[in-house]
């Protein structure tokens, strides 16, 4: 009995002494932290996706609190609402940024882009693209093994088995940019998000010359330049045999969609313009269109290796 009491007493005294030591140590090494960081962190979505460029929401909250000018910081997941409330809480000017959506720029589905071989290695786009051209003859197109699907934390991207292409669900996409980094072919771009998920974009990244593109894929951009000529807003540029529509300049007029001979320009969420009517609203002065035209870059494709 005596031993028991002695043991309990010793432990109690030891515990008390250590608690005192710990108290002073904690005082001495106390880290002063702005309590606002915790509050701002609670406002952020907590997805820890890294879409803002920081290693998680906590780091973003710290940056928001510490930086005086937060115009360069933006949480793509929370969007304008979250940024506004965080900025209001901190008494800073809220950064403005139009919402964006990830867009897969390849339209070479199974019908348009026939398979020439079958890949039996590890089902990964990064592995396949480091080995060879892929299961089709196009060196630029979607491989369809879903490296982008694997990195998406929001379930917004999936590979459609019918087309063999990655497809984005615009309602779920937060434009965090994880898929953009994961795609070894650089096919995914963050583009301006229109209401009702409307979009017009060139669904091709092939820098090959027209004949080479057509051989590999019937839906590819051949760099003919018809879309560039018809665009009244100077939104379309042709470089390395490839058209690109700047989503900031594009007004969704849809004229380019009808011009494209291969159907490489995709139109989402809208009815196409009637085919015949070439005159309506074509007020674009000719001078403007030619001025916006960039000289077609020397066709000097790069090696892929």
């Amino acid at each position: 009995m005596k031993v028991l009491i002695l043991t309990v007493l010793t432990l109690c005294v030891l515990g008390g002494l250590l608690a005192i030591v710990l108290y002073f140590v904690a005082q001495k090494f106390k880290v002063e932290e702005d309590p606002r960081i915790d509050d701002v962190e609670k406002m952020l979505p907590g997805a820890n996706c890294g879409g803002c460029g920081f290693a998680g929401c906590r780091a973003m909250a710290e940056a928001l609190v510490k930086q005086d000018d937060i115009s360069s910081l933006y949480c793509p997941v929370g969007g304008a609402d979250v940024m506004k409330s965080a900025a209001a809480y901190l008494g800073k000017a809220a950064p403005e940024k139009a919402p964006e959506v990830a867009t897969v720029r390849c339209g070479g589905n199974c019908d348009k882009r026939p398979r020439t071989n079958s890949f039996d290695g590890a089902k990964s786009c990064a592995v396949a693209s480091s080995l060879y051209v892929g299961e089709t003859a196009c060196a630029y197109g979607c491989l369809g093994y879903g490296d982008c699907v694997e990195v998406c934390q929001f379930g917004a991207i999936s590979v459609n088995p019918a087309t063999g292409l990655a497809e984005v669900d615009p309602d779920k996409c937060t434009a965090c940019g994880a898929c953009v980094k994961a795609c070894p072919k650089g096919l995914i771009e963050l583009r301006k998000k229109w209401p009702k998920n409307r979009a017009v974009y060139v669904a091709c990244r092939s820098k090959d010359k027209g004949a080479v593109v057509m051989k590999a894929c019937k839906a590819g951009c051949i760099g003919c330049g018809k879309c560039e000529k018809v665009c009244a807003f100077g939104a379309i540029t042709i470089e390395n045999n490839l058209a690109f529509i700047d989503s900031q300049k594009c007004k969704l007029c849809r004229k380019c969609v009808n011009e494209c001979p291969t159907g490489a320009i995709k139109l989402i969420g809208m009815e196409p313009l009637p085919k015949e009517s070439k005159t309506p609203a074509a007020k674009a002065p000719a001078a403007e269109t030619t001025a916006a035209k960039t000289p077609a870059a020397e066709s000097k494709p790069k090696t892929n290796e």
Binding site: L131, Y132, V133, G134, A137, A139, P301, T303, N304, E305
Partner: peptide, 12 residues
């Protein structure tokens, strides 16, 4: 010019 190699990629 660029031509397609055994791996289907283009090289000089």
């Amino acid at each position: 010019d660029m031509a397609v190699n055994g791996q289907g990629l283009r090289q000089m």
